[in-house]
């Protein structure tokens, strides 16, 4: 029999098995997320293939500087998230708190820049529906591009808001002295989710902001 351990739930043989089960459970959830965003990417690709001109023109309306800065901000948040996992594993409470706080800060900056971009699109009359007052060629399909832009970045932003709430819970748990050493797993699972959201953006950025830059 293994030694009784505070972090070990009774249904598991040892901590290694418990941690592996948690990781696999999280990946199972992430697979459903891959399919969710995958459907959006597939629909995006189909309409891009039938209306390449509209996609090219739509992409040129997006602010590549803001999108680029946001990509860097999100990558930075992934770094601090990975450092938070490391700090939790090594029972470094101050480093864990600092990195969780930094991750939340980077996430908030990302959403702030996103909000500014959304506002610019609203002012330019590029929000689909009754706010779509933009005047130019092939408006129907330009509107379709912006429908994809708002739904894909909107769902991505929603995932970030969820991530920020979970990160805030982790901060509270850390302040109560939990999540350190053998109890680090919730930090790692949150990290898996946060990095996944980063990966979604890694594809959204070129597909939305960069496809219309050339020519």
């Amino acid at each position: 029999m293994p030694e009784p351990h505070g972090a070990l739930a009774q249904q598991f043989e040892d901590l290694e098995q418990q941690h592996e089960s948690a990781t696999l459970g999280m990946w199972l959830f992430l697979i459903t997320e891959i399919m969710f965003f995958g459907g959006l990417f597939a629909a995006y690709a189909v309409y891009r293939s039938t209306h390449p001109e509209a996609w090219h023109n739509g992409s040129r309306h997006l602010d590549v500087v803001m999108g680029g800065i946001n990509t860097a901000v999100l990558i930075s948040s992934s770094l601090t998230m990975a450092l938070a996992v490391r700090a939790a594993q090594l029972s470094k409470k101050t480093a864990l708190l600092a990195n969780l706080a930094l991750t939340i800060a980077f996430g908030a900056v990302f959403l702030g820049i996103k909000a500014i971009e959304y506002h610019h699109k609203l002012e330019a009359g590029l929000v689909p529906g009754r706010f779509f007052t933009y005047v130019g060629p092939d408006l129907d399909h330009l509107q379709l591009f912006f429908l994809f832009y708002f739904i894909m970045t909107g769902m991505h932003a929603f995932h970030m808001v969820v991530g920020l709430v979970v990160l805030a819970v982790l901060v509270v748990m850390t302040l109560k002295g939990r999540l350190l050493g053998d109890f680090y797993k919730p930090v790692e699972l949150t990290g898996l989710y946060w990095h996944f959201v980063d990966v979604v953006w890694i594809f959204l950025f070129p597909l939305l902001y960069l496809i219309g830059r050339h020519g």
Binding site: T23, W27, I31, I34, A42, A45, H195, D198, V199
Partner: peptide, 30 residues
């Protein structure tokens, strides 16, 4: 990101299968 930030590089074989399955199903979808 997946291999190093998400630790799959150092994960068990079953973790590789799970991560790979997500990718495989995405490819099937597309």
């Amino acid at each position: 990101v997946v291999l190093y930030f998400m630790h799959v590089r150092y994960g068990s074989r079953l973790t590789w299968v799970f991560a790979g399955a997500g990718f495989l199903w995405l490819v099937l979808l597309l």
